[in-house]
């Protein structure tokens, strides 16, 4: 998952704790192994190296791709699992290394879900294009792992994969799980806000440390695949609470893509959110 993962459980039973930890980590590793674009021989690797040949995918992968297709439509093409190749031009390392228009345009020719032929369960991806399910898989893994945990125990449980999390229910000995939203100023190291989560999902989009700075213009790391350029005026961090971690994560990502309209978008969704600029 590329980040620290933890499961917190309120229990007096060591064996129950071990069983829950076991099922959560098994599920996390299963999803990581299956969908990480960094690992060889998984379904994502096969699609990305299919050279334009059709690939038949299993049900779970098909469900994720269907979900991505829905998000693509909902976002007018700005949530796009084929946008990962833009990273060839953009490396948000804090430098002033902003790519040339021509370079971005050249890569954009290999971006666009509309160019993909998806006829469940068969996917045809043009040679040179890539898909990356990383924008969905972590939140998906949190929800799946939390339901594994809930199947294992009735005790209150919190599954947290790098800040995207789900609480199955409130601990009996407190009013809820206390979750801190990180401060924008990382040097301070203190949470910006404390949230009490009794049940449901919480996910954060945004990373204030990943940006480029050139000629006084700050380029945040959220890329708009319709232009190939970073979304302008995107908030630095958005945290959303929703019934599931997947919904929370997607709402946070979609709001980021709205740029300066992020707050308006979030307010329209009737969800609890914390947006920092």
């Amino acid at each position: 998952m590329g980040s620290p993962c933890e499961v917190l459980l309120e229990t007096d039973s060591e064996s129950s704790a071990a069983a829950v930890a076991g099922s959560v980590s098994t599920e996390a590793w299963r999803i990581e192994d299956k969908f990480s674009r960094y690992l060889p021989d998984n379904i994502v690797h096969r699609i990305n190296n299919s050279g334009g040949a059709p690939v038949e995918v299993d049900d779970e992968t098909a469900n994720l791709i269907d979900f991505a297709a829905t998000l693509y439509e909902m976002s007018d093409g700005r949530f796009d699992i084929t946008s990962g190749v833009l990273r060839e031009a953009w490396n948000f390392d804090g430098s002033d290394n902003v790519p040339a228009d021509s370079e971005v345009d050249r890569i954009l020719e290999r971006v666009g879900w509309s160019r993909v032929k998806w006829n469940r369960p068969e996917l045809i991806l043009a040679a040179g294009m890539q898909i990356d399910l990383g924008g969905i898989a972590k939140e998906y893994a949190v929800d799946k792992a939390a339901s594994e945990a809930a199947a294992e125990t009735d005790d209150a449980c919190l599954v947290n994969f790098g800040g995207d999390l789900v609480a199955t229910k409130a601990p009996t000995r407190s009013k809820g799980w206390q979750v801190g939203i990180d401060a924008l100023d990382q040097a301070q190291g203190l949470p910006q806000k404390l949230i009490r989560l009794q049940n449901g999902g919480l996910a954060t989009s945004g990373d204030a440390r990943r940006f480029l700075l050139k000629d006084g213009i700050r380029y945040g790391h959220i890329l708009d695949p319709t232009t190939g350029w970073p979304v302008q005026n995107a908030p630095r961090s958005i945290t959303v609470a929703a019934d599931t971690c997947t919904q929370a994560g997607m709402l946070a990502t979609l709001a980021m893509l709205e740029g300066k309209g992020a707050e308006t978008f979030l307010a329209d969704q009737d969800c609890k959110y914390w947006c920092y600029r």
């Binding site: 949230i195 449901g200 019934d243």
Partner: peptide, 22 residues
């Protein structure tokens, strides 16, 4: 998104989120 997430996770209903600022 709710409909799509239910299809993805194979669930029919979820407990509504309960989160407040401390």
């Amino acid at each position: 998104l709710t409909t799509a997430t239910c299809a993805l996770l194979g669930t029919t209903s979820t407990t509504p989120v309960n989160a407040q600022e401390e």
